[in-house]
Computed example of a mutant assay.
Amino acid sequence: MILYSNIIGEGKPFIILHGFLGMSDNWKTLGRQFSQQGFQVHLVDQRNHGRSFWDENFNYEILAEDLKNYCKAHNLNDIVLLGHSMGGKTAMMFSALYPNLVSKLLVADISPRFYPVHHQTILEGLSALNFDVIKSRGEADKVLSEFVSDFGTRQFLLKNLYWVEKGKLGLRINLDVLKAEVAEIGEALPSYLRFEKDVLFLKGDRSEYIGVEDEQLILNQFPNAKIVTIANSGHWLHAENPKDFFTAVIKFVG
């Protein structure tokens, strides 16, 4: 089974991996901008997300293998690879396991370390969406607001809504599996894995995902890494400050 993707432009292959509960559509605007710089941009949906296939198996080694199969199916090598959050962990794992396929790696607001589970309330809110009763996006937002107070986070989550059939909404994510395997999202990259090529870690200045204590850990596994801070942004740095994010990425890959 091959991952779904939206491919934009022509040129050097540039793969972008979304985060947990996200999808390739989250990166469409930046993807177009990167394509205008001479890249063929592949906006990929990881398994159990977006329009890609559902499967009960879910961990970073499997997600990396999915990406290897995707590259083989599309005859891609020497790729630029960018991943955000969960996608960043997949990108790190993939680059360490298949370094011959990657020319440059970019990791957005995630470290190789372990992160404790912290999505429980969001998953409870998504589980509370009863589509036998809910018939509109507004009704879904009202139910979700009882669990998730932040409007921007709810809008991000509600991008997963789609019409299964006329009058019947559903979620594109495989919620049951993601709930069951949520602990896998925070798993650390095995400490023996290394990637020796150029890496750019981007962190939001208001985010706590990459702290000072992470810097040595990053360099231990990615000795040619640089860490750049994106101002006026949190964990969703690419959405909160897309201009500076774009500039930092192009400076690195150009």
Rank of each mutant, 00 (worst) to 15 (best):
K179E: 08
R137T: 13
A140L: 05
K168Q: 14
K159C: 12
R172N: 10
V177E: 07
E181K: 14
G170W: 02
E184P: 00
S145W: 09
L161G: 11
N160T: 08
L144V: 10
K159E: 10
D176T: 13
G152V: 05
L144S: 08
E139L: 05
L161S: 10
K166T: 11
R154C: 01
D141E: 14
E181L: 11
A188W: 02
V182G: 00
E139F: 08
K179G: 08
E139T: 06
L158M: 01
L178M: 07
K159G: 11
G170T: 01
I173F: 05
I185D: 05
K166G: 12
L161W: 07
N160E: 05
Y162P: 13
E184N: 14
G186V: 03
L157M: 03
V143M: 08
E181V: 10
F147K: 14
T153C: 08
K159Y: 06
F147P: 12
L144Q: 07
Q155A: 05
L175V: 09
I185E: 05
G167T: 06
E181Q: 15
V177F: 00
I185R: 03
G167K: 01
T153D: 06
L157H: 03
R137D: 14
G138H: 13
N174Q: 07
W163A: 14
V143K: 09
E184A: 14
T153V: 11
A183H: 12
K142F: 12
E187W: 00
K166E: 15
L161Q: 09
L158A: 01
G167M: 03
I173S: 04
L175M: 03
S149Q: 15
E184W: 00
R137H: 15
L169Q: 03
E187N: 13
Y162Q: 08
L178W: 04
G186L: 03
Y162S: 08
A188R: 02
G138S: 15
N160R: 04
S145H: 12
V148D: 04
E146C: 10
A180F: 07
K179D: 05
A188S: 03
A140C: 09
V164H: 12
N174S: 06
E184V: 11
R137Y: 15
K142Q: 15
K166D: 13
D150R: 05
L189H: 02
V177H: 07
V164A: 13
V164L: 13
E146K: 13
V164S: 13
N174E: 08
T153P: 00
K179P: 10
G138C: 10
G186N: 06
V177G: 09
E184Y: 05
I185M: 07
N160F: 05
L171M: 06
D150W: 00
L189Q: 06
D176Q: 12
E139Y: 09
D176F: 05
E165C: 11
E146T: 15
I185K: 03
E181S: 14
G170L: 02
I185H: 04
F147C: 12
L189P: 10
L144G: 09
Y162L: 11
K159Q: 15
V177P: 10
